[in-house]
């Protein structure tokens, strides 16, 4: 699973677009997704899929879809299915949830899930087709009337790019450890799957936070701060 969000060289048209133009197009795409209704979102999903096939990314795109439907969509759907009325009905309360299954909730869950799917999959298409070093160089080189992109923003791009792969490596290990203890998200009864989701958070958060700190130290050791200082001159 760890390689499905990692950049690999390829020949499709997405690989050839300049990273900055790609970021610009991505932001426009996100805005369109945020204003689209359900039928329009479904058309966008088909378009995303067609783009992935055209760029030779069919297999990885399918893996991403699988990931989305295992780890993201169930939460979105369940939340709306049970709690939609708590937010919209007359009994709306900030601190008390009254779970009520509703058809509107189901529809809203599908709608929000589709929107999130478009946002996530377009972002991952950007990540897996953009060379991170080229992206850093282009971002570092931006100079509009003496204004430059802050170091922290560029750091965020490098960090996110690498972290995604490492988090998925850890996720693989944690899921194996869960299965070895007797519960699994991937298979088994629904009860076991729910346990698996509940027990995923502690190890994943702990490892991710520790790793984030180590990566920040590693970037300092690589002289990343110096790059920024030179740019300022």
């Amino acid at each position: 699973m760890k390689n499905i969000f990692e950049y690999e060289e390829g020949n499709g048209f997405l690989y050839k677009i300049d990273p900055l133009i790609k970021i610009f197009l991505l932001v426009i795409f996100w805005i369109v997704c945020l204003y689209a209704n359900l039928p329009q979102l479904l058309v966008i999903v088909v378009l995303l899929y067609a783009t992935a096939i055209y760029c030779g990314l069919h297999k990885r795109f399918m893996q991403q879809i699988r990931f989305f439907f295992i780890f993201v969509f169930p939460f979105i759907l369940a939340f709306h299915l049970f709690f939609y009325r708590s937010f919209t009905g007359e009994s709306m309360s900030l601190f008390f949830f009254n779970p009520q299954i509703s058809m509107e909730g189901f529809k809203m869950g599908v709608f929000i899930g589709s929107r999130l799917f478009c946002l996530l999959c377009s972002s991952t298409l950007f990540i897996i087709t953009t060379n991170p070093l080229k992206l850093v160089k282009r971002l570092s080189g931006i100079n509009i009337f003496g204004y430059r992109i802050p170091e922290s923003v560029i750091f965020l791009f490098i960090f996110v790019n690498r972290s995604i792969t490492l988090i998925f490596y850890d996720l693989d290990q944690i899921l194996d450890a869960q299965k070895a203890r007797g519960f699994s998200i991937r298979q088994g009864k629904i009860k076991d799957k729910i346990k698996g989701y509940a027990y995923l958070l502690i190890p994943l958060f702990t490892i991710s936070l520790e790793r984030a700190q180590k990566q920040a130290v590693a970037l300092e050791l690589k002289g990343f701060g110096f790059r920024h200082k030179r740019r300022k001159k």
């Binding site: 850890d170 290990q173 944690i174 194996d176 450890a177 869960q178 070895a180 203890r181 027990y199 502690i202 190890p203 702990t206 490892i207 520790e210």
Partner: peptide
């Protein structure tokens, strides 16, 4: 497992 952090829940 090799890394205990992966199996503490």
């Amino acid at each position: 497992f090799q890394n205990p952090d992966h199996q503490i829940f």
